[in-house]
Design a protein around this nucleic acid. Structure first.
Lengths: 197, 197
DNA sequence: CGAAAAACTGAATGGCTATTCACTAGCCTA
DNA sequence: TAGGCTAGTGAATAGCCATTCAGTTTTTCG
């Protein structure tokens, strides 16, 4: 088998899973349905994934990997101000989810299925993401542009909360707005609350 | 049968459901387990509830009913400033969830099970709650204490998002902090972003 | 080419559990 | 106290679906 062929099949199974789970929910989707959409036999799924839950976790890992790369690059940008970086992160968060509604449904709804899965995920990746935001906030404090009394991790959670709610609201609304169009006002509001007076 | 006896049994089934679902998740809890904890037979559940999902919806309705009463009273308080009302709502939201961890788990995690349930609930009660917050924000604009350029509904979602994230974070953290203790800093941060300059 | 290995298949299995319903128990009324 | 009504019971049903694995196809490579 040619190199990469195997990887491609894994990807296409994940793609099928994203599509089906977004539309019918995790418990409303059978492994058979995913296999069918991916054009493989039921058993084949188990050559690539340990079990059904592993499929969900893998979706998260794949998406989060892509996301983290870009977020990291923003934070590491030399010479950029904290305010600029925060705007970029807000825009990144909303545009990545806004570009793929199925993925957004899974992130905002399906991953919260069980406290078990949520804990599993939140203990690792989300924690890293919050730390990333906190670093930007610290930079702002050091620069003197953000309030000196803000607690970086606490405030990072606030920032994340706002982004998360915007995404959930967008996912649940049927309207045809672009999620990314909320980046501007969200950034403004957040920065209004963060700036040193 | 004495009056109220029936209502009491319904309540005790709901209590049992809250407890079991918070600990094992909606799909991890069987109707039998709930019946056992409530001290009734499996079939009895179906004398009080249409089916398993109805149990979940009823938990939401009961909790939300209690919550809305209090929130409404805050908003209707005559002579109170918008800033004061917002602080009260923040405190109410966090303290009600913080007082009952099982209920908080269900609100922050289990209700998000399926986009189907989430839509069902969000289209009704949550919408009303957001409208309530929006009214306070409008009042603040009229008073001149809040920024004149804020969009009430949009900003209400931001406020809700922050509260929601605080609650989820608290539910997932094992630490023994009181959720209500975050009310102060959350209010400060929000008001910092809302005040007219 | 041909044989061994790797990948894939999909029908069968086994376990699980929401819901039903024929029956029983308790209570009220005439 | 008998008869009827309401409430409650829990074993049986029926359907679902994740996972397995014996058998088949495809690929690799000497």
């Amino acid at each position: 088998m040619k190199t990469g062929r195997k990887e491609a099949k894994r990807e296409s199974i994940l793609d099928a899973a994203v599509l089906e789970i977004a539309r019918h929910g995790y418990y409303g989707t059978t492994v058979s349905t995913i296999a069918q959409r991916a054009g493989v036999a039921d058993g084949t799924i188990y050559l690539y994934f340990k079990n059904k839950e592993d499929l969900l976790v893998s979706i998260f890992e794949r998406a989060m990997g892509r996301f983290s790369d870009q977020a990291q690059r923003i934070v590491d940008e030399p010479g950029a101000t904290a305010e600029y970086k925060l705007r970029r992160i807000v825009a990144l968060h909303l545009s990545l989810l806004g570009e793929d509604r199925d993925l957004a449904v899974i992130f905002q709804v399906e991953f919260r299925h069980t406290i078990h899965i949520l804990e599993l995920l939140s203990r690792t990746r989300i924690r890293d993401y919050l730390a990333l935001i906190a670093r930007v906030l610290e930079q702002g404090k050091a620069e003197g542009t953000f309030r000196s009394d803000l607690d970086p991790l606490f405030t990072a959670k606030v920032v994340f909360g706002v982004l998360d709610e915007m995404a959930t609201d967008w996912v649940l609304s049927r309207k045809n707005t672009r999620l990314a169009s909320r980046a501007e006002p969200v950034s403004e509001l957040l920065l209004g609350g963060l700036r040193a007076s």
